[in-house]
Design a protein around this nucleic acid. Structure first.
Lengths: 356, 356
DNA sequence: CTGAAAGCGCTTACAG
DNA sequence: CTGAAAGCGCTTACAG
């Protein structure tokens, strides 16, 4: 106490200060601070009291050089999709619950995923989470060789060597197809995001396969160039403008695009939703349940996915030899106002007036 | 090369490996890696080549214990406000541009701001950003004594000792009042978020002051309990249900609440927006410019604010003695479809049928 | 410009 | 259970 009282120094209090004040070795302090260090109850109590009194907090950086850093890296690519705010919130909460912290890497900066990975490895993160992007297997392997388990969230990366937690995109596509057909829609279309993404292709594939399986087929498709409202709006506009066969329903890659699509349908063409055009999205973002959109959507259990990702990572930190697992979670469809049709008579349709 | 080739070890390559391979001291390597270390051009070139070949990346944790950590802590409290996804994205981008990284702390976890601060200090972050929350001045001072400059983003914290970058909430309130009055609305109301927040009170105060200054007054107010769609919906519902004087326009604390409000107005009461009820929000979130909401809003220049915050922090890292500055940015109103009225005749109003 | 050495704050075998 | 010592990977005066 005396020392720290009199010195107006800006020095942080270190383990040495605590050791001096408590009349023990720094090793003793280290052990007392660490739950699994051996320390007699009295000594530990005393040391902890002194540490507390001095306001001592271990320097995590110094600790990290020998032991673990308590840092979990998270690579985020999807800053346009509103769903990711909740996902990020859930991730940081889960990570903090494990007494670790989140090193956030924004991969939008024109930085490639590989660069981002190598960057984050400089901090010796204890684990690495990659959201909605794939990572070259060599890279994953390189991380794991350095005892850094990797998890891929929201992408069904086969043979990645990483833990994978995601939903089955084929199943999502089938679910959308079933629902639209069940509701009586007859000319379903698909609007995906970038065709560079496997997820876009997989949802389309599942969608188309199920349509054909039930004797229907795909009545058009479009592509946005990002996961955004504008992209969905634009793609829907183009799809419905093209003179050919007008679809009577659209399955969108995600909700944010679907919201753009709904607005294009309503405001550019004055078609009614769901009577003239049915809409299905994916994600159940906040605005999907708003009165204005009231969007039928396929809901991925994001919170469960996040928690599964984090817990699997921490168990791999404990058991480094364990093989990375794959978890495919199941989604469920939430029916809302954009797909109520069932007993809808074709003759009521505005679209029916157009040459089909 | 020979060593690293033959050893299948998972050891990371360290400065020692590079020194050995390049036949120089580790000090030489350290200097060569550091732009401001003195190193002859040839030596540096050679060392860098070897380092590169070996795939050497300095361990930032080890570096951080003597030098700076290159970590910037960011405390986030607003994971419900969609605007924060873009803000977070911009922050991480700006920080990465400075070759630093983002330590994200979620303060929603029931963790108080003070706890979060002390936590982040264990990582010896080079600077600390606090978004939309205030920090006790003692805490700020404690950080700055340890050479960690603090910035407060989006809250007008007077005498905080921290750098402050925000907008003037009083001015925002006045701007909303002027606009509603200019558009011919006569019974403006205010719906804020938690009354515990100074920002809520300040916007209301500016709003009311300007109304009265122009010979009008506040026709009711409400409170959501969070910054959320549901809170806005609920508060608007209550406000319009209460039998007294029905407001003909509502200024909401932020856009996400305003969107809830619009939907309540339209779907619970079948009032028309903007004819019966005008709506103004704040933030210009993505959905504010959607066709469905088309919300008049007061736009804070978030990107400029973020960049100003980051650059001011980095300049304080360079010049620790410099006094923290205050930057009050100016907002602008974006007029959209929720407030077009001007020449609107009172007799057309649905609301006029109610006893006023 | 360069190397040897001390040191940053912590952890972890190793003896006792 | 405890202390002395070595070590983690790096940086930074200090001599040369």
């Amino acid at each position: 106490m005396k020392k720290s009282e009199t010195s107006p120094s800006s020095r942080r209090v270190t383990i040495t200060d605590v050791a001096r004040e408590a009349n023990v070795s720094i090793a003793a302090v280290s052990r007392a601070m660490n739950p699994k260090g051996s320390s007699s109850p009295q000594t530990r109590r005393h040391i902890l009291a002194v540490a507390n009194q001095l306001g001592y907090k271990p320097n995590r950086l110094a600790r990290g050089i020998k032991a673990r850093s308590s840092l979990i890296g998270i690579l985020v690519t999807n800053f346009e999709n509103p769903a990711y705010l909740a996902i990020l919130s859930e991730f940081s909460t889960a990570i903090q619950r494990h007494n670790c912290h989140t090193l956030l890497i924004n991969v939008n900066t024109g930085k490639s995923v590989s660069e981002a990975v190598s960057l984050v490895m400089e901090y010796h993160v204890d684990a690495l989470i990659v959201t909605s992007a794939t990572v070259p297997p060599e890279l994953v392997e390189a991380c794991q060789r350095q005892n850094t388990p990797v998890a891929i969230f929201g992408r069904n990366a086969e043979d990645s060597g990483a833990s994978v937690v995601t939903c089955d995109d084929l199943a999502i596509g089938r679910m959308a197809a079933d629902h639209l057909l069940d509701q009586g829609y007859q000319r379903p279309a698909y609007i995906g995001a970038s065709t560079h993404e496997q997820a876009t292709l997989n949802r389309q594939q599942g969608f188309v396969a199920r349509l054909e399986q039930r004797g229907s087929r795909l009545f058009g498709s479009g592509e946005g160039h990002q996961h955004s409202y504008d992209a969905g709006y634009g793609a829907a506009f183009e799809l419905l403008s093209s003179g050919n066969i007008a679809p009577d329903s659209i399955f969108f890659f995600d909700d944010i695009m679907a919201c753009g699509g709904i607005d294009a349908v309503r405001h550019e063409f004055s078609y009614r939703v769901p009577e003239d055009v049915g809409i299905v999205g994916v994600d159940d973002i906040l605005f999907a349940s708003s009165k204005s959109y009231d969007l039928t959507t396929i809901c991925q259990p994001f919170n469960d996915m996040v928690n599964k990702t984090v817990s699997s990572l921490f168990s791999r930190i404990q058991h480094p030899e364990a093989a990375p697992g794959r978890t495919i979670m199941s989604c469920h469809l939430i029916q809302r106002g954009t797909t109520q049709r069932v007993s809808y008579s074709e003759s009521d349709s505005l679209l029916a007036e157009r040459p089909v």
